[in-house]
């Protein structure tokens, strides 16, 4: 079993003559870097969440038409943004993996998927709880809601497929294809409220026009959006570390890491 996998392991490491930025693309350098960075992102996420919640509940005023139920927006919109953004990042890493044949890229996209699925579920759940008191229904099959549900299924499909296929190289490729194909759904979600008649309202915050929100409301939403970025970075880095150990278990450096871990208990 050893000879084939050792070849692959060597291929994962960029040549030592490559540019120095690529040094962190080598698993043995990325592993400790991820371990050092993750706690900082976690602390940032926690602090931003506290500030964001304070803005959301104590600074932002009640909404003129919806009353206090609009406060769901402070998690609904950041979660929906994150669920779309993470999928695009997964597609990006999958494309990099397919083109450059760097296996760490596939591992990155697989480490992102559960967090993306989590945010996707949160967006759907909070949307349902927001829809009932405002629209009068928990769920409708309009283009926005349907395409967001499709995104959740794409996440589930990606996770199931990459875990189900025994051979990691084949699993990587199959997952990468789902990530790339499914990425088409992301602009569909985003523009669905423009392209079709939907019950869901249009975007309050976009790059092309001034936000249609009071500034303190907007502030709370943006702070929580940054909190979810930091959270995603922290949890993904934590998740990718054991995945790297698993993939690189034949190498010397993982042996050394495991000895340290074993000795620590």
């Amino acid at each position: 079993m050893a000879s084939g996998s050792i070849d692959q392991d060597n291929r994962m490491n960029p040549s030592p003559r490559g540019p120095s930025v690529l040094r962190f693309a080598a698993p043995q350098n990325f592993y400790p870097l991820a371990g050092r960075l993750a706690p900082w992102f976690a602390v940032t996420a926690a602090v931003l969440t506290l500030i964001g919640l304070w803005l959301a509940f104590f600074v932002a005023p009640v909404d003129a038409t919806q009353g206090n139920v609009y406060r769901v927006i402070f998690i609904h919109v950041p979660a929906a943004w994150m669920s779309m953004f993470i999928y695009l990042v997964m597609a990006f890493w999958s494309a990099v993996g397919l083109v450059m044949n760097t296996r760490l890229s596939f591992v990155m996209s697989q480490a992102l998927a559960p967090t993306g699925a989590m945010f996707c579920f949160v967006a759907l759940w909070t949307g349902a709880l927001w829809g009932r008191p405002t629209w009068g229904a928990y769920w409708v099959w309009d283009a926005r809601l349907t395409s967001q549900l499709l995104l959740l299924f794409l996440y589930f499909g990606f996770i199931a497929l990459t875990r189900a296929i025994e051979d990691p190289r084949r699993g990587d490729r199959a997952g990468a294809i789902i990530a790339l194909v499914g990425a088409v759904n992301v602009p569909v979600i985003y523009f669905s409220v423009k392209w079709w008649n939907t019950l869901h309202q249009g975007a309050s915050v976009s790059l092309t026009k001034a936000p249609s929100m009071a500034s303190t409301m907007l502030m709370g939403m943006l702070v929580l959006a940054f909190a979810s970025w930091a959270y995603t970075l922290a949890v993904t880095l934590w998740r990718v570390r054991p995945m790297i150990l698993e993939r690189e278990r034949h190498t010397e450096w993982v042996g050394a890491v495991l000895d340290r871990e074993g000795g620590r208990k």
Binding site: V62, G67, N68, V69, R71, V72, I75, H76, A79, P114, T115, M118, F121, V122, W125, T126, L129, W130, R132, P133, Y231, V235
Partner: peptide, 23 residues
């Protein structure tokens, strides 16, 4: 929450529960 407590706290509660679960 102006009568919307179930919907607002149901949203925030479940969100933080799944985050805790993920961690």
């Amino acid at each position: 929450m102006g009568g919307a407590g179930f919907f607002v706290w149901g949203s925030y509660g479940v969100t933080f529960a799944v985050i805790a679960l993920e961690l």
